[in-house]
Design a protein around this nucleic acid. Structure first.
Length: 275
DNA sequence: CGTTGAACCTGTTTGC
DNA sequence: TGCAAACAGGTTCAAC
């Protein structure tokens, strides 16, 4: 269920445990999971993992051989996981990529993704720069206030659509959009450009707080998200509205949480989040 | 430019 | 218990 916090947890564990390792072997179970660059796969054998970063909801591995660095971008989609395993672990259905590593703290990294939304991209430096620039807008955790304010002011669509628009702000998905809007007391259908300066300020603060707290809690494990080391996140215990239709609003206003269908499910309090 | 709905997939939950 | 429908973290494309 990777949104920004989950992808960040994945990236941090990779940094801690396999950064600097050498890629001994790269096994692809489903060629169609590699959207770009499959013919360049051989180049990666013997390369060293020199960078691990999160971009939006994706994890970007930088692999170097000599002076050259190329990239492996792992889109996780709805159900994608990167897992530390060992060659002794049995093959699990829906494992599409296995990276055998040498010199790190984990011998294998496997990409598991039953629904196969989300892909792997193998890109050279120019390719990944183009890829990232085209796909990802500003990062919610590092975007300066003034940029955020301008982005919101310049959008004529719904505020929830804005939060989830990866080319504008990269990393927020349905769970965190719902949680952020509830805490900012904003109805998901409010028009972004019509929000007051003060409201945008509140949204900015809440957005960063929710995402940062979620990272500290290891992300949200609502269905089957687990980190590479197999641990679950705990932020789902702090969810206030997501998947809670019919339950009383936690603010104690007396109303019940509603679910709006149409786009993705929106969970909100009709009293605390007015249009 | 922005919104909507469908498509892409498999697995689990829900309801009859 | 059995079966079918509904639904799920995401992205992309076409149509309006």
């Amino acid at each position: 269920m990777p949104e920004l916090p989950e992808a960040e947890v994945v990236a941090r564990q990779l940094q801690d445990r396999v950064l600097g390792a050498t890629l001994k072997d790269c096994w692809v179970g489903r060629p169609d999971i590699v959207r770009q660059g499959l013919p360049t796969l051989d180049w990666y054998q013997g390369a060293r993992l020199t960078t691990v970063e999160r971009r939006g909801k994706s994890v970007v591995l930088g692999l170097s051989r000599g002076q050259e660095t190329r990239y492996l971008v792992a889109e996780l989609g709805m159900t994608g996981l990167l897992l530390f395993q060992s060659p002794d672990d049995s093959y699990q259905k829906h494992t599409h990529l296995v990276l055998s590593l040498d010199g790190g703290l984990e011998p294998e990294l496997r990409y598991w993704n039953p629904r196969r939304f989300g892909r792997i991209y193998l890109l050279d430096r120019a390719g990944q720069e183009r890829f990232l620039a085209k796909r990802f807008g500003c990062d919610p955790l590092t975007v300066p206030w003034d940029t955020f304010r301008q982005v919101v002011k310049g959008r004529h669509g719904r505020v929830k659509a804005l939060l989830m628009h990866q080319q504008v702000i990269a990393g927020i998905g349905n769970i965190y959009a719902n949680e952020i809007l509830y805490r900012a007391q904003l109805h998901p259908y409010r028009i972004a450009s019509r929000l007051s300066e003060q409201t945008i300020r509140r949204l900015y603060a809440v957005m960063r707080e929710v995402l940062q707290d979620a990272i500290l809690e290891g992300g949200s494990s609502v269905r089957d998200f687990i980190a590479p080391d197999g641990s679950e996140g705990h932020y789902q215990k702090r969810h206030l509205v997501y998947d809670k239709a019919g339950q009383p609003c936690p603010a104690g206003c007396g109303k019940r949480i509603r679910r709006l269908v149409g786009e993705r499910s929106s969970f909100y309090c009709p009293s605390c989040q007015r249009k």
